[in-house]
Amino acid sequence: MGTYKLILNGKTLKGETTTEAVDAATAEKVFKQYANDNGVDGEWTYDDATKTFTVTE
């Protein structure tokens, strides 16, 4: 398990959240659902060194 971070750079929603997941693929699924639930759809990037996903609208 590891802690993964999501940085939201949406047009109307900005912020950060974290999740505990077994791997990056699992964290990505959780974060994409979170972003979708909050109406954020954009370009995704992932930094393996910091376990950080970023979505920018």
Rank of each mutant, 00 (worst) to 15 (best):
A25N: 09
V40W: 12
A21K: 03
N36M: 15
G42T: 02
Y4N: 01
F31V: 02
T17G: 04
A21Q: 07
G39I: 04
A25R: 10
Y46R: 02
G15S: 13
Y46W: 04
D48R: 07
L8K: 01
Q33N: 08
E20K: 10
T3K: 12
D48T: 12
K11W: 12
D23G: 04
K5A: 05
V22K: 10
V22T: 12
K29N: 07
V55N: 02
Y4D: 00
K51R: 14
T19D: 03
T3L: 14
T3G: 05
K32C: 05
E20M: 13
T3F: 10
A27M: 01
V55S: 02
Y34E: 02
A49H: 11
A35H: 01
T26H: 13
K29F: 10
D48N: 10
W44C: 02
D37W: 08
D37L: 11
E20I: 14
T3Y: 10
E57P: 07
G2L: 14
A21G: 04
L8R: 02
G10L: 15
K5W: 12
A24T: 07
A24P: 09
G2W: 15
N38M: 15
D37C: 09
L6C: 08
K5C: 06
L8P: 01
T19N: 04
E57V: 06
K51S: 06
L8F: 11
N9P: 03
Q33F: 05
K32Q: 08
D47S: 06
K32I: 07
T45E: 07
M1R: 07
T26Q: 13
E16R: 07
L13H: 13
A25S: 07
G15W: 14
V55P: 00
T3Q: 10
T45F: 11
T18R: 08
A25M: 13
K29V: 11
E16G: 07
K32N: 04
G10M: 12
K14N: 08
M1G: 11
T19P: 01
D37M: 13
A27W: 00
K32T: 05
E57T: 07
I7A: 04
E28K: 11
K32Y: 06
L8V: 13
E43N: 11
E43L: 13
T50G: 04
D48P: 14
T45R: 08
T26G: 10
Y4A: 00
A24S: 09
D47H: 07
D37S: 11
L6A: 03
T56K: 06
G2D: 14
K29T: 09
D37P: 01
T26D: 10
D23Y: 03
V22H: 11
K14M: 10
K51D: 03
F53N: 00
